[in-house]
Amino acid sequence: MPRAHGSLREEPSIDTQRKYPAMAERPLSPHLSIWKWGPHMLVSILHRVSGDGMATVGLAVLLWWLGALASGPEAYDTFASVMGSPIGLIVLVGISWAFFNHLSSGIRHFVLDIGAGYELEVNRTFSIVSVASGIVLTVVFWAMVLLV
């Protein structure tokens, strides 16, 4: 097999393609339009979504909670009634999921940081475990909130 010349994005010349037909069909990088969903991709996207969701919505709710607590019972009741409404509860469940999801995929990042978990099967399994663990921990958290 001859070595590809120049950069990966460079098209092989017509002569080269005639001489080595396989080169005309070799994958050229980047193929941005050809992809399919995989667990590693999902876990990466959810890490950013949950992190930036907490950084915006989560921190706003946190500050409202602390500010209301510091202001007195009336301000706290306003906060509690909004957060106790159906939409408020969806927001709270969303924030708690964002935390547990980001926590799980963050631990995955620490493992990857030490150079482990890059084998295809291990990486795939760990990605699925990260996403599942975020959901399981959220369910456990709300079970404790409601039952304890």
Binding site: L69, P73, A80, F99, L103, F141, M144, V145, V148
Partner: peptide, 21 residues
Amino acid sequence: TVLFLAISLALLPGYDYATMR
């Protein structure tokens, strides 16, 4: 620190002003 908050909230007996404060 956030796990401390989450576990503490989960274990609190109620979420009214007096308990929370």
